[in-house]
Amino acid sequence: MKKYDLNDTYIASFDNEKAITTKNIQVFYGKDQAFFNGSLAFPRYKITALIGASGSGKSTFLRCLNRMNDDVATVKGDIMYRGLNINSKKINVYELRKHIGMVFQRPNPFAKSINNNITFSLKAHGMKNKKQLRQRVEKSLKDAALWDEVHGELNQSALALSGGQKQRLCIARAIAMQPDILLLDEPASALDPVSTAEVESTLKELKKKYTIIIVTHNMQQASRISDYTAFFYMGHVLEYNTTKNLFTNPHVKATEDYISGNFG
């Protein structure tokens, strides 16, 4: 396996509005350091893709952004969101996760009906009004491009849906909380090409209202849907640029090798 210079990095900066900014993120599992230098600024209402080989730390990094690593790992560094460092013990993580939602690699709807999948967390956060709940269910299913397929069977088990439908339900469940930012951890990697296309077109629609950060190991997917791309390698961010520039004109050797399939 080739060795790349981990100090040879190219992190472009952009002057558009940022939704969330990270500075010197480091992640430790016990004594083992899994992630070394994450300093990235994510533009608002854009899709940013995090690409890299398995084990490059992209998921680990993503999970820092809504504190999903809390019980698993130690995260050092600053994550600035709306002027607050959210990587601080003082932050109410339950409130934070309402603003920064997450969709996982494998579709994980609750073993409840389609309707209750969405209303469960809303109710838990105090929404009681039935009409309001019904409207929120309809709106999030429409935003996730699932409404037309399921509106007649909202009381059916969510487990009976197809893989792509389940994943869009998980997206609907996340956006029902009306978050600012949506984190997606390889949301299409367990899906077939048709379902993948469904999810991708849903995401393109969603970026009008949400800032999306998506982890993918599929470079075609990154180039199809994202506006910005960061390349991860062995727990380091080696390159960050607009998707177009990163794919057509990579500055770092490792990125160039990775996107040309000449890697490892």
Binding site: M68, Y94, E95, L96, R97, M102, N108, F110, R173
Partner: peptide
């Protein structure tokens, strides 16, 4: 993880 990511305890 799904529950936690939705801000539930």
């Amino acid at each position: 993880e799904a529950g936690i990511s939705l801000g539930l305890s």
